[in-house]
Each structure stands twice: as C-alpha cells, then as structure tokens.
Design a binder for these strands. Structure first.
Lengths: 258, 258
DNA sequence: GAACCTAGTTCCATAAAGTGGAACTCCTGG
DNA sequence: CCAGGAGTTCCACTTTATGGAACTAGGTTC
C-alpha cells in the first residue's frame, strides 16, 4: 500500500521519518491534518509519532499547533555543520552528471581570490583529469571561477590577470563581456583558457536566497568536446546544478499546480 | 532498566531519536560501537535502527563507516531555516532567565546600524517593559547594542551618536572605553542611557565559530535594580547566554569527561 | 447559549512489528 | 593462515505499535 517496499522491519521509525521529512522539506509550517493526509497514517498513529518526535526535539509546534523542524535541526544549522557537508549533498548530482557525460566532474567554491575544487568525480576514459580536489585555480581562467565571478560569489584580486595559455582572457573589458554572457546563457565555458587542450563548462549552484554558493563543472579534452557535444553537456550540467540548487532550498520561481 | 520512563508506547522511535541525537550533537563523526555504548542498545537493534535512519536521509556514513547527520539536516541548514528559528532555540533560555529574575527579558540582534529585538519574555511585575519585539534601538545607548558593538557583531553608522537621556554616551572615546569594559566583564550595562529609570544588562550569545550573533538582556526599572541585585542578575544573564551559545554549538573550551 | 462541527488525543483488544542472543560474514592485523 | 573485532542477518519470542472508536477541546452557527 505504501510507496516504498520496506526492506526490513522498522515500520514505526520509517513512518516517523516520513512525517519528519514532510515537516522539514516544507517551506511553511505543516498542520496535523496535512500530515495525516500526506502520509496516509491513522490519526492516532500520527499523533503518537509526532508526540515522540516532538519529545525528542525533532519537531516543534508554533502557536497555531503547526509543525516545524525542531531544536535538533536548528542547532545543527547554527553550529555550521552544513558548510562542511555541501559535498555530501552534492555527491548524487555529481555522480549522475559524471555517469551521463563520462567526463570529469568538479564542484568548486570561492576561496579568496581563487576558485577551490571541493569534490570530484573521475572520468570514465583513460585520458582525463587528474585529481583536483583541494587545488585552487585562477578565477578569470576557469569555468568555475567565471561562474563565481559572474554571480558575485567571488571577487578578483587587484593585480593583473595571469596568463596561463594564449587563449586566457587578460583584458578586463573582455572578461566583463564574457561574464555578461555567462549570466545570459546560464553557464560558463573555459576553452583552453586555463590549460591547452582542456575545455570546461560550469553552471551556478544557488542557495535558498538566490546567491551563488558554488559551481558545478564538466571538464574534457578538446578531442572529446566538439561543438554539438558541448551543447548537450552544458545542458546536462545546468540541469544538475539546478537540481542541487533545489536541494539547497532554492526556488527559482513560484510554480503553479499542486 | 532504561534511563527515562517513556510516557507512552513509542520505544522504537525514541531509541532511533536517541541515536540520531548522539550523531547530530557530536562534533565529530560517531562510530557504530560508540553508539551502542552511548545508548546501551543491542548491536542488532542499533544496526536496524541506524539502517532505517540512513535509508531516510537522517544520517549518513563517511568513508570509514562512521555516522554523520544526513541530507535532511544539511538541506535544512542550507535553506536558511535556522535564521528564522533562533528565537525557538532561545525560548527556553529566555523563559528560565525570566522566571529567575522576574524581569523583562529580550533577545536582540544587529540590524544595520541598530539593535533589533526579536524575542521577549514579559516581567512578572505590574510595572515593567512594554512589548519591544520588532523595535530597533540605538546601538550606543542600549545594553544589547553595546554587546553587539563590543564583539564586532554590529557597526555604528557614521553620524554623531544621538542623545536620548542625559546619561547617554555620546563621546566616541567614552564608548570605546565602555566597550572594552563589556568585553572584560562579559556583559554590558545601560544605566538610564536609553530611557530615564530603565536599567538593562546584556550578555553575548556566541555561535559555533566564536562570533557573536545576538545578545540576551534583562531590563528593569531603577527602583528594582539596586547594585547587589544587578550583580546577581548579570551573573544569571551571562549564564543563560552561555547556555544558549552552547546550544548553538559554541564550545569555549574542550571539556573533560566521556 | 445550546447544538453542532472539526481537530486532535487517549483507550484498548488485537496482531504485527520490534527485540536481542546467537550464528554468520567481512575485514584487519599478526 | 588463523585470531579477533566489527557489524549484519536470522529467527523464535513477546513486547510494542496499531487503528477504530470513544472522548475532549475549541470554534462556529443559528
């Protein structure tokens, strides 16, 4: 009768978790009745489970008796555990993107005047990216960096822009134009601007408040990234980045339909 | 045999919640064995419950099989639910402070160049504070404001400091000296500096990373806040602020004991 | 202000789900 | 290759959760 086939005997916990999930993933406080409806549980069961969740600080009630995530969630959020866990939330999205493109996938964030790689999925080919996790790259020459710059998630340092290949953008005006393109298209491209033979495409990851917190990228050798492939890859990259954004609570536009 | 007398029949959920609590409130990943030890549950039970929690995104395992808070917590934290819920976490501390002093309790945060009151517990006396929630007061004249200033959680605006009573500090040098005192003592006092007849004492609330995010205050009419009373009140205020800080993950000093 | 909803909690007999000891499977290190 | 620890799976036992019904608490209507 339930949606999922429960692997083993833990009904009560699973049901409680389902209730909890409804409460936590909702953007607004949830009523008791909505919860019985959403989970299909009997009133008595719902009541007992919610009482247990409340007793354990997993949910709480507002003045109208509606349910909100409890002290345990708030406390976790305040203690900053989230920052270190971005990678964990992102992993499934990276994996999916890696599987569908076969190329090297990276997740990068701003770290001072550079872009730092914090997670990676290796490519399926013999020739491909090495491990970049922990490495920092120039903002103006990398696709991830350009995404961060374009959305104000990183600032260039004062000095002149270092040239790493003959295609590297070093003029401020050119970069500004490129960044405008990044915002318009929804993704950034670094076409041999960081390293000869390397093309990278990156898309922005938004947080609940619409600010960009990271960028998701696909890197491949020029030999495998022709124009048509690039278009498809870019679309997939933007898709997964959007999915991750949504997991972080970003809601691009109020959407119709229940 | 168990530590707590369970009010009603929800053993499995309570046990799962206890495991979850261990995982979430720990600063480091927790091992399976630590969990069995901490909760006193049988290996088989622990295993089953953890599997259920994992399946539902409440915990996850790192590469060494140790347990961390799951996607549900991270996602909640990233979507910014915490900010709106500071009041909820703080409530018990405010209540306790209110009960033990009998006076008006406030929780305030920085809001631009002012201190904004975001929660309040009303005093037990007939004469006392009115509702301040939502009100903003000058940083330099209020105890909450001085705490925020002293710990760099708020900045004064450029202009001159407005005088609201004849005791208001309006000289920058005097204020600077006062703020040094606030840091040294651990609390701030506004002695009729905001309104004649009103004394307020405030203590800082720290976040996990040691930054100050809010201030907790006790306000009373001069008639009830004599010197000795003030000392006791200040101590209680600092205590509760420390308790709240701890709930937000702040650990002033590594603590001994299992 | 009495009758009537609706929302939610408590009761209780039933049976289903959780429990824990023991057996089993994986690792890791000697 | 064997020993020992860590964790999972099995399974008979029984404790614990379940859900319908009764009950309580607010709120609305007439």
């Amino acid at each position: 009768m339930s949606t999922a086939g429960n692997p083993s005997g833990t009904q009560a916990v699973d049901r409680a978790a389902k209730l909890l999930s409804e409460v936590v993933h909702s953007t607004v406080p949830v009523t008791f009745t909505e919860l019985t409806a959403a989970t299909g549980l009997a009133k008595s069961t719902t009541s007992r489970l919610l009482l247990a969740l409340e007793r354990n600080g997993l949910v709480r009630r507002d003045d109208h008796g509606r349910f909100l995530p409890g002290e345990m969630f708030v406390s976790f959020a305040w203690r900053g555990g989230a920052d270190t866990s971005l990678v964990a939330v992102a992993q499934p999205f990276l994996d999916r993107l890696g599987k569908s493109t076969g190329e090297t996938i990276n997740l990068g964030v701003a770290n001072g005047p550079q872009a730092e790689t914090i997670a990676q999925v290796d490519c399926a080919y013999l020739i491909g990216g090495t491990n970049w996790v922990g490495l920092s790259v120039p903002l103006h020459a990398s696709a991830i960096g350009k995404v961060l710059l374009a959305h104000g998630a990183a600032q260039l340092s004062a000095g002149p822009m270092a040239r790493t290949t003959d295609k590297t953008i070093t003029s401020e005006a050119t970069l500004r134009a490129d960044l405008a393109g990044v915002r318009a298209r929804g993704y950034a491209v670094s076409d041999e601007e960081l390293e000869p033979g390397l093309i990278t495409i990156a898309a922005p990851v938004f947080r609940f408040d619409g600010t960009v917190v990271a960028a998701l990228s696909v890197s491949a050798p020029t030999s495998r990234m022709k124009r048509e492939t690039a278009m498809a890859v870019a679309r997939r990259c933007v898709e997964e980045a959007a999915g991750l954004s949504s997991a972080l609570g970003y809601r691009p536009r109020a959407r119709k339909g229940a």
